[in-house]
Design a protein around this nucleic acid. Structure first.
Lengths: 325, 325
DNA sequence: TTGTATGCGTTATCAG
DNA sequence: CTGATAACGCATACAA
């Protein structure tokens, strides 16, 4: 690869001059500017961003740590985060923690070593103090770590309330909420709070099914639903923590000849593509994934530029009614 | 962030010595080694990988360019590529081209500028010569660019043959293949070759429906299927280019009261999670995504280490029978 | 308008 | 066993 030095020699100037035309700094005669451009073209020159990063003290790389990109919600989030990051001139270093503490920790170290200018954390297996000493622009998704670390989430409590009320309004007498590991300190757990509070207030029987499958294994959800039906055959409403889980529920209901929505109603979460792809199409709580992604990137960007940012960034959710209710 | 210099001062040695203990090079007394370790611990030191990259001429970063990570096939591929890359000490820089030529080109430039040690290309909107002058370890997914650029794919022709024969064996009289843009120079197009050849050989009516939606928009597939049914109401077998398309087909069939598999049979492609999540569960051609990902990383790794690699790397596919046939 | 010298954080080549 | 010093590719303060 050609370096700035090669260009300088070929153009008959010094590296300083080349650097100047490269960065449009200071005055340069049109003649030399032309010569330099010419040399750059001839040698197919491209500035070494590693060297630039070193001298500028800025890499424009963002780290993104999430449980796994192989999940409809996170893959969409990743897509949009990368999209907006790119629009701001940032590159994304992708990290799949698989909700493994060791991996998450290693990734954080790795990202620091690689001098990323910010980290977007959507995997939360560690304790608070592991993050606060990071001393790096940080934005958290779906978890509030401390007063001064901004986080983005959608309104989980509202989502839980909407879903639960909707099931009850539709006539459900005994409802279940199926969710991930409640031990992880996630804001998504608010959905369960809302579920319980709403069911309680409206005096409807309810049960929460928690999976401690720490790795998001889509295939495993079937068992969860099966077990739920075994323990509670009279369930007539399911609120699922994600559309994937809801799809599993639909499948199991089908296998067990439970009519949807006549005998049992199902409501999902996220409104990922799968929600409108399954049959019957899924009623679900829509998270504004694109808006959240844009917000996340903006919050990182502002922090990098030393601008003030608000800590709490909670976006609204909406209920999308389809065919499973 | 503490630098090697800070460590040196605090430990009362020179940077050379610190660097030595850091890299376990040459002899160092146990005493100074201890002192250095101590200083590193106290200052929470972490080597600057940017500086290292510069002097070593090696970043251990891999670029991954694909149409969009927001698709079940690519998100799984991305997951496993990152997984195996990490295991080999590489980091992944993620690029979603959205099948946009301009973006794809910009990403390639960007990755070169960032001195990545290899590029994994799964987006193919450009002409051959744009890639061959890259002068960088390169592995291509699902496209053969030239004699000496290794590519990985699954056996698309076999997949097309298996699917087509299966539909015909099951009694279909008029079958359709729904696929993406055949103008992109993809090996996936071999499926269509196989589809046509097989249908022809077995004297079964067939039609290929091609979408030129260049961005993979999951929602758009419905229309495609609807149009197919409008033009060819007597279709009784569909071979879909991906499970997502197949899921759309299932949905449309349901809406049109076409019984699956009695009146119409559907076979998907990929065996992504969605295949076993929809109802009825999808018969599909399984691509060995994990194996392909591992292979891709191995091929990049070997090239980086100047080892010989084989150009053609075609992995077998299998038919997974479920409920739509 | 252009050039010289210095430094970014690290490794590597010499000496000692 | 340890220390100067040059070098990686580039940007910039200071001169000219």
């Amino acid at each position: 690869m050609a370096t700035i030095k090669d260009i300088a020699e070929r153009a008959g100037v010094t590296v300083t001059t080349v650097s100047r035309v490269l960065n449009n700094r200071g005055y340069i005669s049109e003649a030399t500017r032309e010569k330099v451009y010419q040399a750059m073209k001839e040698l197919d020159y491209q500035p070494n961003e590693i060297a630039r990063s070193l001298v500028r003290g800025k890499t424009n790389i963002l780290g993104l740590i999430l449980p796994t990109v192989d999940h409809p919600f996170f893959s969409k989030l990743t897509f949009f985060i990368e999209y907006y990051a790119y629009a701001h001139g940032y590159k994304i270093m992708l990290c799949n923690s698989q909700l493994d503490q060791k991996k998450e920790k290693e990734y954080i170290e790795m990202l620091r070593g690689n001098q990323v200018n910010g980290i977007i954390m959507a995997s939360h297996t560690l304790e608070v103090d592991e993050y606060i000493n990071l001393n790096l622009p940080l934005v958290t998704f779906d978890r509030q770590i401390s007063e001064n670390i901004p986080f983005v989430s959608s309104d989980n409590y509202l989502g839980g309330t909407l879903a639960t009320n909707f099931l009850i309004d539709k006539g459900c007498k005994k409802i279940a909420y199926i969710c991930g590991n409640l031990n992880l300190n996630l804001l998504a757990n608010r959905r369960n709070d809302a579920f319980i509070a709403t069911a309680h207030a409206r005096k409807v029987k309810h049960v929460t099914v928690e999976t401690n499958i720490n790795v998001l294994d889509v295939g495993q959800y079937d068992r969860l639903v099966l077990e739920l039906f075994r323990k509670h055959p009279d369930i007539d409403g399911i609120f699922a923590g994600s559309d994937v889980v809801a799809a599993s529920a639909i499948k199991v209901c089908h296998q067990q000849q439970r009519e949807i929505p006549e005998e049992i109603k199902i409501i999902g979460y996220d409104d990922s593509d799968i929600a409108s792809l399954v049959t019957p199409q899924l009623t679900t709580i829509r998270q504004p994934i694109e808006e959240m992604s844009e917000l996340i990137v903006n919050l990182i960007h502002k922090q990098i530029n030393k601008e003030e940012v608000s800590t709490e960034n909670i976006l609204p959710v909406t209920l999308v009614e389809r065919e499973t209710t």
